[in-house]
């Protein structure tokens, strides 16, 4: 007797003409030190790693930069425009990031509210249009609004990045329905960005059928970031496989798993 193990082979994640094996993307902020960051990122299995653009600290120019710990040959550096509150600022940061010379990708954030860090969709769309025209591959951090996601896709964004919940909140996927709706309607990759708190959040998010997840605080702020990074790698893979496998239908009443015949008198 031969046994066939049917293995679902997933497609690579394609964004802006590039292909990635891992569907987990990780940030590099908030780690207690660079060594922990480097080990956590390695443990996560992520290929796409986000960085921010900031002024060089001129009093500490001797200090090793973050790139000392992140081999650009091994990781795909995705610069963000975090901290930008206007389209003009975000465009300025994106241009600076591209000048660093790694790639033409930008994780576009235009923040509209300091307390919730929710996006300013008007500024976001405006910045996205300009950056796409300038040849950027724009990955747009947005809210759960389908119409905004559709407009972002119309501008030519390479990926749409709806939030699971607010940045750094760890509240998990608050509205699976809206994320599913965006995924169903948008043809570009949908990467859920922000809000995941623990491995089950990542798994549930991937089970919605999205193309990937970007997270930072969930790993960096865990008691053991390296263990959490590993857990997140497994969770993203498990959630993705579960989605591809197709879950059983939900039932309100029980259905026995064992035969109801052959019972003793």
């Amino acid at each position: 007797m031969t046994t066939t193990v049917a293995t679902l082979v997933d497609q690579p994640l394609a964004i802006g003409g590039r292909e990635f094996r891992s569907r987990l993307m990780v940030g590099t902020g908030k780690y207690r030190d660079n060594e922990t960051m480097a080990r956590a990122i390695k443990a996560s299995g992520a290929e796409i790693v986000t960085v921010a653009v900031r002024r060089v600290d001129l009093d500490r120019t001797k200090q090793e930069g973050i790139l000392f710990h992140l081999d650009p040959k091994r990781y795909f550096l995705l610069a963000n425009t975090a901290g930008c509150y206007t389209a003009d600022d975000a465009i300025r940061y994106a241009r600076l990031a591209r000048e660093a010379g790694f790639n033409e990708f930008i994780k576009l954030e235009v923040i509209g509210d300091e307390e919730t860090l929710l996006p300013d969709v008007e500024g976001l769309l405006q910045a996205a249009r300009t950056l796409v025209q300038e040849g950027f591959e724009v990955m747009a951090y947005t809210n759960e609004d389908l119409v905004t996601a559709l407009k972002l896709e119309d501008t030519g964004c390479a990926a749409i990045m709806p939030l699971a919940s607010p940045i750094g909140s760890g509240l998990g996927l608050i509205n699976p329905y809206t994320v599913r709706t965006i995924k169903r309607r948008v043809s570009k990759p949908v990467i859920v960005d922000a809000g995941v708190g623990t491995a089950s959040d990542a798994c549930v998010t991937m089970e919605q059928g999205v193309d990937g997840i970007l997270m930072n605080t969930a790993i960096a702020a865990a008691q053991d970031p390296i263990a959490m990074a590993r857990a997140m790698g497994h969770a993203v893979e498990a959630g993705r496989l579960a989605y591809l496998a197709g879950r059983m239908p939900r039932r309100e009443i029980a259905l026995p798993s064992s035969p109801t015949t052959g019972m003793l008198d």
């Binding site: 590099t28 902020g29 986000t50 960085v51």
Partner: peptide, 10 residues
């Protein structure tokens, strides 16, 4: 003059 580089971020 602004001198910028990449730092940790999400």
């Amino acid at each position: 003059v602004e001198l910028v580089h990449f730092v940790g971020g999400g």
